[in-house]
Amino acid sequence: MSEKTLSEITYRIRRFNPERDSTPHWEEYRIPYSAGMTVLDGLWRIKETHAPDLAWRSSCRMGVCGSCGMLVNGKARLACNTQVTELGGGTVVVAPLPNFDIVRDLVPELAPMFDTHRALMPYVIRDDAQEQEHPTGEFWQSAHELEQYLQFSYCIKCGCCMAACPTYATDALYSGPMPLGQAHRYNSDTRDGGFSARKRVLAGEAGPWRCHYAGECSRVCPKGVDPAKAIQLMKRELVLDYLRLHKEHCPAPVAKKPTEGKRRDNIPEAPPPTV
């Protein structure tokens, strides 16, 4: 549908107010279309003109903060990253992300996802606590080593992958693609030495073995993170570890400061580190 032929647009929104409703219901709103309008822009318009009590989460409006994940026309997406014209010009159907309880209207309860995420220790784990607390330099890493986890580090924790995963749809114990993908992001970081610690949490039915590569998580991910790939790569590492063939890397050392060379006169000294 071209922008020129679209003057008004209908939104069908799943509403739920825990103080008033026992179950969610649908409501329709008609609003004027404006060029370049995103699904999020439309929600703001509805809030301003029709339904001041409509609730959702959003912040950055540019696909960075990860708060505006919703089910838009049957697919989990970021409302701020989805143009209304992308949806073909028909009714825009918006519902809260499935597989999470509904707090209110389009607000999903993401706490279980973040609990699981936290349990999988999504941070660099090392033995040298002193160096981590009071760093004397950067940890050394090659460009190739960086590539092994860079893709997975683009995750903005929007939860779209969790809403699309068929395993998570029937199995509340399964950790889900976001936390598992992030566990692999740190496992494959050469600065990290936490593979064994995470392995203990990954064992059992919460772990990656419940994933059977339906790949929906990767299909809906708005940042190209490809959690399905991360999970399959992690399974390989776990199998190799079981066969005692997994190469446990020593966490990357602190990069040596250059000792040779002379600073050019016109380049000022770097400011003192703040952390």
Binding site: P18, P24, V103, P108, P166, T170, A214, E216
Partner: peptide, 24 residues
């Protein structure tokens, strides 16, 4: 503990529930 309204897709997550690809 969530006090929200349950919204897990259940078996609908296998068969429908969205626009899925061939691997699904």
């Amino acid at each position: 503990e969530s006090k929200g309204h349950p919204n897990r897709l259940g078996l609908w997550g296998w068969f429908g529930g969205g626009r899925w690809g061939v691997e699904r």
